[in-house]
Nucleic acid binder design. Structure first.
Length: 604
RNA sequence: GGUCCUGUGGAGCAGUUGGAGUGCUCGCCGCCCUGUCAAGGCGGAGGUCGCGGGUUCAAGUCCCGUCAGGACCGCCA
């Protein structure tokens, strides 16, 4: 090694030792006769002093982020000159020798913890951004999270197994990324949206306990917590029940929060059914750091003459409310803003009533439309106090109104300052529905088509697909879904019935994932698993607002990488070689997703 | 595909009612400086106000379009 010690590790007990350090100039304070340089390496910062002689002459020329090597003796700082802000603040290194390993040009972005730059500049010079302590710490934390997960899984006899990233387009929810295949022009690989099918095959293969820190790809639009390539801690186990998988999930998450957040999660983590989550919180990933629960007013308001509510109730729908504590104090403009907020979510508006802080009397546009009796009992019905505001939503489909109220609940908590930023609130959302209506009047799988109905519905989910429940579970932290999984179907007859309900013909099923069904002919074990959204989970542990902070080289929301400039056009030669424009042969394999291959004509 | 916010020397910001590229902090270049630690002092360089069009006697400022970054909706089994 070029260095003998790590800069950040030096302490008063090292005084008198001669050391060689290597790192970067974090800051230079040139007093003419004496020069201080803060030398930073991966371990931290130590102050180097240049007083006289050649090293001091050289040190005048140092600039921020020069890469240097310094040899010198560690000494206690003169009394009164200690810096309690630094772990190494009691000592300094008196330079006897200085080597400039490499110089740094004027910086396009300050490597300074006190200044934050815009995202585009940070990403373009991400290697400089990562020299700063915050971004650096986030990546190092993620590395430790990986190790902790591997440790827990290894202790439980899991095997870490890699699966292909060039694979077959599968009929999962999102758009696939496609890769042209030079060796078979006109055919395409897809990048996996998850290793779902492979890990099930590994169960058939008798691996019994599999995990992988797996890169997944989905060609959908970006969010603060979504990139097109992302990472899952993917796990699958044979011969287990839902409780076994949940226990494992708690062991992993418990270890992560214990070691990386200094927080002991009390287990078992509370479970809430999907339906209860929707009716109480208007979300399938409820943030339990605060209350502000929804109230179902469908029965209470039955018979109302207010058309908006009556219409929903008559259609067999739902009317509900959520209370904003102190919301009556909002200005007219703030209340109008709520209407814009609701419209931005595709709602027609957000009906509200404010309760006078003195008299408790209900006021507001909607109050005129409600009967005396309905108004008189409203505060008690929704648990509101004088000075509160009550927001209403009504819809023919309960879930639409609940989701609007759920979004309002989050907004209320944020605006009213009800969120305890230091709190951790975990829960499992269990008993998710098997199916939901698709746009064409049929059914689609809420989770995926291999998810098993629970014990209660296994033999009769066809009777009421809208009410059938699955062995599917999501783990939620502070309103973020950090993982989800299910017990899979391992019986051919059940799988056939599920396909039937989904309107997937035998031929379709065999075209799309015949290889999995084929495998399931040969004694598949009962199995289930979970996938933890690793970027999101690390983001929470790092206290970051975006998963970009825990990704070494993230992309901007346009899918652009400002550092490499990807994506780029390709050359004509690359295009020809890749076979992008080749016409698939008549004997080409079955199309991946759409069922029938779309003929591709070569472009001139 | 839609809604909203932002874009001003290398970085971060301010810029009022439309009136001179106006200001601040940092960085950069030069000089000075022996105990600083986001060192300090003096001097200096550096600008297509994202881009294009329009309104106007006059646009960083108002309008339209466009590009880029961000937040959200749609989308994401």
């Amino acid at each position: 090694m070029i260095r003998t010690h790590d800069a950040g590790s030096l302490r008063a007990s090292d005084a008198g030792t001669t050391v060689t350090l290597a790192g970067w100039v974090a800051r230079r304070r040139d007093h003419g006769g004496v020069i201080f340089v803060d030398l930073r390496d991966g371990s931290g910062i130590v102050q180097v002093v240049f007083r006289e002689g050649d090293p001091a002459e050289q040190a005048h020329a140092l600039r921020n982020e020069f890469c240097i090597k310094v040899t010198g003796e560690i000494g206690r700082r003169p009394a009164g000159n200690e810096n309690p802000e630094l772990p190494t603040g009691e000592i300094e290194v008196t330079a006897a020798e200085l080597t400039i390993l490499s110089e740094a040009a004027a910086l396009p972005l300050p490597v300074d913890d006190h200044v934050d730059a815009g995202d585009d500049v940070r990403l373009r010079y991400r290697y400089l951004d990562l020299r700063r302590s915050g971004p650096s710490r986030a990546l190092k934390l993620r590395s430790r999270a990986n190790q902790i997960a591997r440790r827990v899984l290894d202790e439980r006899d899991f095997y870490e197994i890699e699966t292909p990233t060039l694979t077959r387009s599968t009929p999962e929810g999102a758009r696939d990324f496609l890769v042209p295949v030079r060796l078979q022009p006109g055919t395409w690989y897809a990048l996996p949206q998850s290793p779902q099918l492979f890990k099930q095959l590994l169960m058939v293969a008798g691996m019994e306990r599999y995990y992988q820190i797996a890169r997944c790809y989905r060609d959908e639009d970006f969010r603060a917590d979504r990139q097109p390539e992302f990472t899952q801690l993917d796990i699958e186990m044979s011969f287990v029940t839902q409780d076994d998988v949940i226990e494992l999930g708690e062991a992993i998450v418990g270890a992560l929060w214990r070691d990386l957040a200094g927080y002991e999660i009390s287990t078992p983590i509370p479970r809430i059914t999907w339906h209860e989550a929707m009716s109480r919180y208007g979300s399938d990933k409820p943030d339990l750091r605060y209350g502000v629960e929804l109230t179902d007013l469908t029965e209470y308001l039955r018979g109302t003459e207010f058309r908006v509510f009556a219409g929903a109730i008559d259609a067999g729908g739902y009317v509900g409310a959520v209370v904003m504590p102190g919301g009556a104090g909002q200005s007219r403009k703030e209340l109008d803003d709520w209407q814009d907020w609701a419209k931005a979510r595709g709602a027609r508006g957000l009906a509200y009533v404010v309760l006078d802080a003195e008299t408790g009397q209900a006021r507001g546009p909607v109050a005129k439309n409600l009967s005396e009796a309905h108004l008189a009992g409203l505060a008690d019905a929704v648990g509101a106090k004088p000075g509160d505001a009550v927001f209403f939503a009504a819809a023919a489909r309960a879930r639409d109104a609940q989701e609007l109220l759920g979004a309002a609940r989050i907004e209320i908590a944020s605006r009213a300052g009800l969120v305890d930023q230091s709190a951790w609130a975990f829960c499992w959302v269990v008993d998710a529905p098997m199916f939901e209506h698709d746009d064409e009047g049929g059914w689609t799988a809420v989770h995926h088509p291999f998810t098993s109905p629970n014990g209660e519905w296994l033999d009769r989910f066809e009777e009421a697909p809208d009410r059938a429940l699955a062995y599917a579970y999501d783990i939620v932290c502070n309103g973020n879904e950090i993982g989800g999984g299910s017990i899979r179907i391992h019986r051919a007859d059940v799988q056939r019935r599920v396909f039937n309900t989904l309107g997937i013909s035998e031929r379709d099923a065999s075209d799309k994932f015949g290889f999995l069904l084929e495998a399931f002919k040969y004694g598949p074990p009962p199995h289930g698993g979970i996938a933890l959204g690793w970027d999101r989970l690390c983001m929470l542990l790092a206290g970051a607002d975006s998963i970009r902070e825990v990704i070494a080289f993230p992309k901007t929301r346009g899918g652009f990488d400002p550092l490499t400039g990807a994506p780029t056009p390709i050359t004509a030669q690359q295009r020809t070689e890749a076979g992008i424009d080749a016409k698939p042969k008549a004997t080409a394999p079955q199309a991946g997703t759409a069922g029938v291959a779309v003929p591709v004509e070569p472009t001139p």
